[in-house]
Design a protein around this nucleic acid. Structure first.
Length: 610
RNA sequence: GCGCUCGUAGCUCAGUGGAUAGAGCAGGAGACUUCUAAUCUCAAGGUCGCAGGUUCGAAUCCUGCCGGGCGCACCA
């Protein structure tokens, strides 16, 4: 139970009574300015908006007390100001009357402040009770969703025979956090790695493979030198007329199922997949080969998809291509924009693959929530595909699709870190550098750690820094990749959170204990402040799961960590007297679990010492 | 031209229509015989891109501008 709901529950009836009373007196036929029907469910006292006073006779009307965190107290309620105009009374009077009626018991004390705010300060005893309850469970105050859904998360999606670069970083990191979070909440999550393993480039890639020799090519690819392989193929394609001709006919052979072509293609794919898995392992993400749903997976479904579009009357032939024109997408010239499902040369377009994938996800996998962790530039394309799927009946409620879009990673110069030609930053090299920098840091800060521990810490801190930097800002915005900032020892970084956790574990090592699950008593201001933050964990997780804006969760964890650091400075744990010591150990334990679980949801490890 | 998106402290970023707009970094001043100083405390730092509008109240909602980024037919 979170505090805001608890406080709302206490204040709500009082507000309703005050509002209803006044409405009974004043609400005449003239008051019907709004046709809003005050929502049927009286069971939900905390509706989104303060309901319009439509009840005719002094009956209780649900009023949202608008409780939120406050700088002047723990919480504040703003509802009196909103009611003042409607009731024709001064807001301070309303607030005062509400406080007279509200049953706050020993939950908190309250006072009217300023123009009519109600400031609420939660009692230490109430915090202790709530924290003890939270500490006794394993879910840390996170309530399971009402319905467990099947969620398909489409993310990472590297291209065969192409290097993974920073462009894949965000999709992979955000997608991994998404699956960890939704899975922990109790949803059935299907990871879908939409590998680019099909299409015209494979003609030239196979021909290049033949030219360099299979074993040589396999070697090049297995050491992860994918870009130069791809580039060499491209160079040959552009420069050599005959090569280009071979490449084009190779595509035809491959797509018509020619056995030798398929064998060579599989070779390319398998080497790349091995490489991708190595990168995922280094990145510490949960993707495995079982999650590969490459483009070619849908090949057999493309024909039926196009046939069905035709049968539904959605297909139009335009300039020789089979197209769908979803509603609401005008192009440059004002005419509707198409999704090309079959190109004029007879080959299927990627739009067909995307549509087949949707149909597979809703109809075969049974998904009701389809997430696309894909860069923002693809927004319009995705919306067109989703609109088409809705028109075809493959995406109908409760199933819905959500584009989890993200901005670019920028360099220090403010331009895209991923460059067009040649100078891509290899993801694997970037990760290695992160770990190396973190190792150097660990050695300088903690010279007493042995090399084995240094290596573990370096991995957790280095990889954590990269992930946290990505997850801690609003994902729609671009962000600047900056080693010094992300590996900084203080500020809103993963290292800071990991350090807070390591300090807690250190206390337990010294205490000779692993956990402490006793009751928690709150007395000191620093304990009070920490308690408020800890009790907010459930809400932070819930809102993150809804919006998939992970900076909400990182921001929450950061406030937990800062509150803990202040507590750590001000409240001795091991040196405290017996009763206090047990309580504080339990508070440390709970804080440690929140930090560890919170970071685990982000895919970030928490070493026991740093 | 149309569409999407962003614009908040010197820098990087938060900010669910509510009080004096918050953090961190950098820069300034302090705190380690005390559970990890990879820490903490204090001070300083702002025409919330601009202009209108709605509202008792706008960084937040609406409209129009300005600026940055990205899309807009057979590449994915």
């Amino acid at each position: 139970m979170n505090l805001e709901k608890l406080l709302s529950g206490r204040l709500g009836p009082a507000f309703s009574a005050v509002a209803g009373q006044a409405a009974g007196k004043t609400a005449g036929p003239a008051a019907g300015s709004s046709a809003e029907p005050a929502a049927g469910e009286a069971a939900e006292p905390a509706a989104d908006d303060a309901a319009e006073p439509a009840a005719p006779d002094g009956q209780a009307i649900p009023v949202d007390p608008a409780v939120r965190r406050s700088q002047r107290a723990d919480f504040q309620s703003d509802a009196a100001l909103a009611l003042a105009r409607r009731l024709g009374r001064p807001p301070r009077d309303i607030a005062a009357e509400v406080l007279g009626l509200a049953d706050l018991g020993d939950l908190c004390r309250a006072e009217v402040s300023g123009p009519g705010f109600i400031n609420l300060t939660v009692a230490d005893s109430a915090l202790g009770t709530l924290l003890s309850g939270m500490a006794a469970g394993e879910r840390l105050g996170v309530v399971p969703p009402e319905v467990s859904e099947t969620v398909v998360v489409d993310y990472s999606g590297p291209n065969v025979a192409k290097e993974m670069h920073v462009g894949h970083l965000r999709s992979t990191v955000i997608g991994d956090a998404t699956v960890r979070l939704l899975e922990w909440l109790g949803h059935r999550v299907v990871r879908v790695n939409h590998l680019g393993d099909w299409g015209t480039p494979f003609g030239m890639l196979i021909e290049h493979l033949i030219d360099v020799g299979e074993s040589e090519a396999a070697h090049d690819l297995s050491v992860g030198d994918l870009d130069s392989f791809y580039r060499a193929a491209r160079v040959a394609f552009d420069a050599d007329e005959a090569f280009g001709e071979r490449a084009r006919s190779r595509v035809v052979a491959l797509q018509s199922g020619d056995a030798d072509s398929r064998r060579l293609w599989r070779l390319l794919v398998e080497e790349s997949e091995k490489y991708f898995l190595a990168v995922y392992d280094r990145l510490d993400v949960t993707l495995t080969e079982a999650d590969f749903y490459p483009e070619s997976f849908y090949n057999d479904l493309l024909g039926p998809v196009v046939d069905e579009l035709d049968r539904l009357g959605l297909l139009t032939t335009s300039a020789g291509a089979a197209c769908v024109f979803p509603h609401g997408f005008p192009g440059r010239d004002g005419r509707p924009l198409p999704i090309i499902v079959r190109k004029s040369d007879g080959g299927y377009g990627y739009g067909a693959t995307d549509l087949a994938a949707i149909r597979h996800r809703t109809q075969t996998l049974g998904a009701t929530r389809l997430l696309y962790v894909v860069g923002l530039p693809q927004r319009q394309h995705l919306e067109m595909v989703h609109q088409t799927a809705r028109e075809a009946g493959w995406l109908s409620p409760p199933a819905r699709a959500q584009h989890v879009g993200f901005g670019s990673v920028l360099g220090a110069d403010g331009r895209m870190l991923r460059s067009r030609a040649g100078t891509n930053v290899k993801l694997i090299e970037l990760l290695d550098e992160a770990v190396a920098r973190a190792a150097e840091l660990a050695r300088s800060k903690s010279p007493d750690l042995d090399e084995r521990t240094i290596a573990e810490v370096a991995r957790a801190v280095g990889i954590g820094a990269v992930k946290y930097a990505d997850l801690s800002t609003y994902r729609v915005k671009d962000y600047v990749f900056d080693w010094d900032r992300m590996l900084s020892l203080d500020g809103n970084t993963s290292a800071y959170l990991q350090y807070a956790h390591a300090r807690i574990r250190s206390i337990f090592r010294r205490a000779g204990a692993v956990t402490a699950r006793g009751d928690i008593t709150v007395t000191e201001p620093a304990e009070h402040a920490l308690a408020l933050e800890l009790l907010d964990f459930g809400d932070a997780v819930a809102s993150t799961a809804e919006t998939l804006e992970f900076h909400r969760l990182t921001g929450h964890l950061y406030t937990v960590a800062t509150a803990f650091s202040a507590f750590f400075e001000q409240c001795p744990v091991l040196r405290a007297g017996d009763g206090v010591r047990d309580s504080r150990l339990a508070l440390c334990d709970l804080t440690g679990r929140v930090l560890r679980q919170g970071l685990a949801l982000l895919g970030i490890a928490t070493p026991d010492r740093m």
